[in-house]
């Protein structure tokens, strides 16, 4: 869905000297099914994830809510499946799964990844990154180290944008009102772009910014960190 984010992740990691692999069989972590109440449908996706990624040194995921899904629910799901081997694999694999910014700050201990991004940017703290993964100020520290960036604080930075997966369609009115609060705050910063660690929030925020013809873009954190001097962004 968001190829630019994936490309950016590859670019940043390779720039830092890491080898990136992309198991072609990967699909979806199962979050949408699980969180909407379709637990049974999410189970095979857990098995698929484990099969695809076992043996990896580190699994880097540029989506905080997917990582939260894995950490918060995979162990429980494996238990429910009563598959001891799978339980063992999940327990072994999970500590190696990192959200992208988390991999940089906590996994590699980095703040400055040598990025250049000459734009006015505001950061939205996605709920799952903030409350489930406890990313704290990690993403902001990464952004502050970017050369050329004009980082402005977002009012109500910890407030949910109203996406919530199927919540956005099941409770479209409430979701829309929450989104309106978020876009109002974004516009108040006069930023050119709003960034986050999760494309689902960004797709949601971007949807309203585009509808309102604001000209403000959304861009995944990885795409900012992939920015280099002399390369058009």
């Amino acid at each position: 869905m968001f190829p630019e984010t994936g490309k950016a992740v590859v670019r940043v990691l390779e720039r830092l000297g890491h080898t990136v692999e992309f198991p072609a069989g990967q699909t979806c972590c199962g979050q949408m099914h699980y969180n909407t109440g379709y637990q049974a449908e999410a189970m095979p996706l857990l098995e698929r994830f484990v099969a695809q990624f076992k043996g990896a040194e580190a699994v880097v995921v540029p989506s905080s809510s997917c990582v939260a899904m894995m950490r918060d629910h995979y162990p429980k799901m494996a238990l429910a499946l009563k598959d001891r081997e799978l339980q063992g694999q999940v327990n072994e694999l999970l500590p190696k799964v990192f959200e992208f910014s988390e991999f940089l700050t906590k996994g590699l201990g980095l703040e400055d990844v040598g990025a250049y991004y000459p734009h006015r940017v505001t950061y939205h703290a996605s709920c799952h990154g903030l409350r489930n993964l406890l990313l704290g100020d990690g993403p902001v520290r990464l952004l502050k180290a970017v050369r050329g960036i004009d980082l402005v604080e977002l009012e109500g930075v910890e407030q949910c944008c109203g996406f919530g997966g199927t919540f956005a369609v099941k409770n479209a009115d409430v979701s829309g009102a929450m989104l309106a609060d978020k876009t109002t705050a974004v516009l108040k910063t006069k930023a050119e772009a709003c960034t986050a660690c999760d494309n689902s929030c960004l797709m949601h925020i971007q949807g309203a910014l585009h509808r309102q013809k604001t000209g403000v873009r959304t861009v995944h954190l990885a795409e900012i960190l992939a920015g280099e001097e002399g390369v058009q962004q």
């Binding site: 968001f2 190829p3 479209a172 829309g176 989104l179 949807g207 309203a208 509808r211």
Partner: peptide, 16 residues
């Protein structure tokens, strides 16, 4: 419900 107040970008021409 999505398009009440939001647009949706088309799917990418080339996937990752």
């Amino acid at each position: 419900g999505w398009t009440q107040v939001r647009d949706l970008q088309e799917m990418p021409k080339e996937t990752f």
